[in-house]
């Protein structure tokens, strides 16, 4: 069985993500998973068996904090080296419109593999726009509440108390999105090609035309602006 679509070098390809985006993405993948595994030790009962992997609870504590600092640093790198990329990302999220709503309406069927007709999408489709809002919001909340919990003595007690449920809720919603995102960006037969967009930076031209028609036309097309 094929898990991820083959990387086809023989077909024409177009760039989807630049180097800084990809580095930030995979940096966050590693640090998020490390933080998640070490954090679950405290969040869930019956995870104690995992503690020795990180050198006991003290080791897990250290891994959690070091990974969190790197997670913050990757955001800093993204902001410093590709600020324009962030602005373009936000601009694309703000283009949320009728096509995105239509996408989200039919998406559950698509998710399970039923053939459906989807209107043309911009660089990020309706689902990706949702993920682009929820996951970064959760990560920012995780960071803010995390640093408050790390240095509770310099913050008011009320703020520390509210940080605990916020940290957990943000973790849950971020993990929910990460699970879906990880699956859709790899093993899902329809969207698996996007894995190469994030791994090598390019996607198949025909895939881009099919899946992100508006983005393709605007970026690589013949300037046909009536796509919307």
């Amino acid at each position: 069985m094929q898990f991820i679509p083959e990387y086809r070098e023989d077909l024409p390809r177009v760039e989807r993500f630049n180097f800084v985006s990809r580095m930030t993405h995979w940096g966050h993948t590693v640090t998020f998973i490390l933080c998640l595994l070490t954090g679950l030790l405290l969040f869930m009962d019956g995870m104690d068996w995992m503690a020795p992997i990180f050198g006991g609870f003290n080791g897990a504590n250290m891994v959690h904090r070091v990974a969190a600092v790197f997670m913050t640093l990757f955001i800093g790198i993204f902001v410093v080296f590709d600020f324009k990329g962030i602005i373009n990302w936000i601009k694309d999220i703000l283009r949320f419109g009728i096509n995105d709503i239509k996408f989200i309406m039919v998406f559950p069927l698509e998710f399970l593999g039923f053939p459906v007709k989807v209107p043309p999408q911009t660089r990020f489709n309706g689902g990706e726009k949702g993920n682009s809002i929820v996951t970064p919001t959760c990560v920012i909340l995780l960071m803010l509440s995390g640093y408050i919990m790390w240095f509770p003595m310099i913050f008011p007690a009320g703020l520390v108390r509210i940080s605990y449920p916020i940290h957990d809720l943000a973790m849950i919603f971020a993990t929910l999105m990460v699970c879906m995102h990880g699956y859709l960006g790899s093993f899902h037969p329809g969207s698996g090609e996007s894995f190469w967009g994030m791994w090598k930076g390019t996607v198949r031209k025909d895939w881009a035309q099919h899946h992100h028609a508006i983005w393709y036309e605007e970026t690589y097309g013949d300037k046909t602006k009536d796509a919307e």
């Binding site: 069985m1 679509p5 993500f17 993405h25 990302w89 996408f103 998406f107 698509e110 998710f111 399970l112 593999g113 039923f114 053939p115 459906v116 007709k117 989807v118 043309p120 999408q121 990020f124 489709n125 689902g127 990706e128 726009k129 993920n131 682009s132 995102h181 859709l184 960006g185 899902h188 037969p189 329809g190 969207s191 698996g192 090609e193 996007s194 894995f195 967009g197 994030m198 025909d206 099919h210 899946h211 992100h212 028609a213």
Partner: peptide, 24 residues
């Protein structure tokens, strides 16, 4: 499971219509 079952039933899947893409 279902995407692969339906793909077997309906032939090649994922090349004929837009679907959720990868990352942002």
């Amino acid at each position: 499971v279902t995407t692969r079952l339906l793909a077997n039933k309906q032939g090649e899947h994922g090349h004929d219509h837009p679907v959720e893409g990868g990352h942002e």
